[in-house]
């Protein structure tokens, strides 16, 4: 189990914080995704947990042992954490086999372990090659194998798929997390891609400007985001301003902030709240069409729909169950 308690790090003596008062827990054998835009402190968090950087405040516990506090720091080489870097960081002068066995200590049966791990990632035939002779996806799996070989207590993957193109990315994402689930290792997985996070993580932690703003299961995060920011991370969201509420004649609680996902707008179907609108502009996006609408009270609204042939005058609406409230 990983336990992080009020972790802070500043690179400019406290003027700005890369990470501010971050606390969370991660149960054994769970996969947690850390999601945030670039500059949100994801990589700093990873480097603090792995011991490559030192925190200014707070503590980290792994399996009941304090590995980082204000008094004591366990160096990275003694933490038993596996780390897969964004750029893989394979040792260029060592073969795949040597790379994988690098972190395996002597007393264990090295050869057997290597075989096991190579089979796990499906690269048995490539063990004598050098990293530069491998494709990006293969390098990625070698990096994973190398991190798993010493049986780490925690596996961290830092933006593991960002160097791959979209097709390979999906394929590899499923492979990698199948492997992780098979080994039953606790895993932290850093990404800026919410699709990645939603598809494989048990829990998702949202970081914004160095602070945790929400941590929850994937389904909950999508249906019950706690802020407009979190809602917009997982898809196009439109904030229901007062004028929009007037147009749809939906009386909502004025003390709260409301929003609705783009996909929950319905065109020309029966809904609880309805408004008539004129289509000002259609932009063809391939699978979908973006419509710029002028509602009858003069308010403009942009929605995306799969309906290709919409008339100039349409009826648009949504249901109260789809309204997000913060």
């Amino acid at each position: 189990m990983l336990k992080i308690n009020s972790l802070s790090k500043s690179f400019d003596r406290g003027k700005t914080f890369a990470l501010k008062d971050v606390s969370f827990e991660l149960e054994k054998a769970n996969v947690c995704a850390i999601v945030g835009e670039s500059g949100s402190g994801k990589t700093t968090l990873v480097r603090l947990i792995s011991g490559l950087e030192r925190p200014d405040h707070g503590s980290i516990e792994l399996d009941g042992k304090t590995i980082s506090s204000l008094r004591k720091i366990i160096p990275p080489e003694k933490r038993k954490i596996g780390l897969v870097f964004q750029e893989y960081a394979l040792f260029p002068h060592l073969t795949i086999l040597e790379n994988i066995l690098y972190g395996v200590s002597k007393q264990k049966n090295k050869k057997e372990r290597a075989k096991e791990v190579l089979e796990l990632v499906g690269l048995t035939s490539l063990e004598k090659r050098y990293p530069h002779q491998l494709s990006g996806g293969q390098q990625q799996r070698v990096a994973l194998a190398r991190a798993l070989a010493p049986n780490p207590s925690l596996l961290i993957l830092d933006e593991p798929f960002s160097n791959l193109d979209a097709m390979l990315r999906m394929q590899l994402r499923n492979q990698v997390f199948e492997i992780i689930k098979k080994t039953g290792v606790t895993a932290l997985f850093v990404t800026h891609d919410t699709q990645d996070a939603l598809s494989v993580a048990d829990e998702i932690l949202i970081l914004q400007e160095g602070e945790v703003i929400q941590k929850d299961g994937a389904a909950n995060l999508y249906t019950k985001p706690n802020s407009v920011y979190v809602a917009s991370l997982f898809g196009n969201t439109i904030q229901l301003t007062n004028t929009l509420q007037e147009a749809f004649q939906c009386p909502l609680n004025i003390d709260c902030c409301h929003a609705i996902r783009n996909e929950n707008f319905n065109i020309n179907t029966e809904c609880e709240y309805i408004s008539h609108a004129t289509v000002i502009k259609k932009t063809f996006l391939g699978e979908t069409v973006q419509l710029l609408l002028k509602l009858d009270n003069g308010e403009q609204l942009s929605v995306v729909t799969k309906e290709k042939n919409v008339a100039e005058r349409i009826r648009i609406g949504f249901d109260s169950k789809d309204v997000l409230e913060f």
Partner: peptide, 12 residues
């Protein structure tokens, strides 16, 4: 990240 990954793999 190259020396870093060596350290994370338990080598001083």
């Amino acid at each position: 990240t190259i020396p870093d990954s060596s350290k994370v793999l338990g080598v001083g």
